[in-house]
Design a protein around this nucleic acid. Structure first.
Lengths: 211, 211
DNA sequence: TGTTGATTTGAACCGTGATTCACTCCTTGC
DNA sequence: GCAAGGAGTGAATCACGGTTCAAATCAACA
């Protein structure tokens, strides 16, 4: 019985798998999912096309995994920014909008890939849960705000959807691949503008710069 | 010189061309752009695949034309509903939201195709101007409302984008191809909910059922 | 070093649907 | 009737990337 399989070849294999994921992610961040062809991913790891298939069932699954990990990271950041239960609901929703918008305007390519780029149904399924997560977070905050009287009575789910839609649509013009990079002033202005819009919509007192 | 080209063969040709457009439109309305393959379009006219190409440069251009005509029709309806300059701005924006939302919830398949279905870049370009038209109409109404004091001071362009985003996102769950058909009550509820949301966002007085 | 099986390689293959084009069928004007 | 082109036909071709797989290579053990 030569070649005992289990060794630190395990570790090697995982590293390799991870390398493909990293490579794909870099390609997506640079030029979207479209650019992450199997050939390009392999090339970036100095590996062959075929070897990708010893670690992943299909390109779709690979990309879905890339999507999930990138999306999870974004969601975690937002969740962290929003988690301080001591804060007013309006404050927390303001943070949600700021972080979401700021991250998108910073990593524009990736934001576009996660939010808008046409993708295969398998990846689209991931996007659905990703968008759903944001809406869930918003919904919970709005529910809290409704309870505390920070917000005017309304359907929390609908309001959260509308907020996410308003934010996305306000941003899409700035993160579309062929759009010019917005200046810092423009970034601040769109973020604050959309925040004010949403605060009014929820019936929250809008107290200028923060809170 | 036999066969003088110009005759009422012109008329025939235009009818045929129109037939292809009609067929494509029907296919799109039933199952989206994806379903409007050249073969399907030709079959629906009892014509051959090749004949499509004597009337159109490419499938993309044909579909772009279908998109444009369907979109123009939608835009015209909204424009008409919104054109009464005597009305309050809030009233007019309410009509915009009602017509847009009502049309989408009625012709769900077509609305999904026009708003959300992944399409080729050539068709996507049409979608860009389509969405832009709605935002333009909204912007003008908001500008009027700003001038008359109906709305709270704000960036009209940003507000209009946000309104369109809020409406779209509130609707997408209901018009996605695999979603169940909403009841009349649900339709009314989502439409009114989103209208109330937008009215508050703009700082308009919300006077319940209408106006 | 030889043996065994895990791993890698990349050219060939495949599925899909748009596009082409050599051929046939018509219509018109003489 | 018949010549000259326009129009219609649909099987063959093309484009494109994902996927496969037989052969080559490599790592571990005796």
């Amino acid at each position: 019985m030569p070649y005992r399989p289990t060794a630190l070849t395990r570790k090697n294999a995982e590293d390799k798998r991870d390398g493909f994921l990293r490579a794909a992610r870099a390609l997506v961040a640079a030029d979207g999912f479209r650019a992450a062809t199997v050939a390009a991913i392999a090339a970036r790891c100095q590996a062959s096309v075929g070897s990708v298939y010893s670690y992943f069932d299909s390109r779709d699954r690979l990309l879905a995994e890339v999507f999930r990990s990138a999306a999870t990271h974004e969601i975690d950041l937002v969740r962290a920014a929003v988690s301080d239960a001591g804060q007013q609901a309006s404050e927390r929703l303001g943070e949600l909008i700021r972080i979401f918008s700021g991250r998108a305007l910073q990593g524009r390519r990736m934001a576009w890939a996660l939010l808008f780029e046409p993708v295969s149904p398998v990846v689209e399924a991931e996007r659905l849960v990703y968008r759903g997560s944001y809406t869930d977070i918003g919904e919970q905050i709005i529910r809290d705000g409704l309870f505390s009287g920070d917000f005017v009575p309304q359907d929390a789910r609908l309001a959260s959807s509308a907020v996410m839609g308003a934010v996305s649509e306000a941003l899409v013009g700035w993160i579309r691949p062929d759009s010019p990079e917005p200046s810092a002033a423009e970034q601040a202005s769109v973020t604050e503008g959309i925040r004010a819009f949403c605060f009014r919509a929820l019936g929250a007192a809008y107290r200028g710069g923060n809170s």
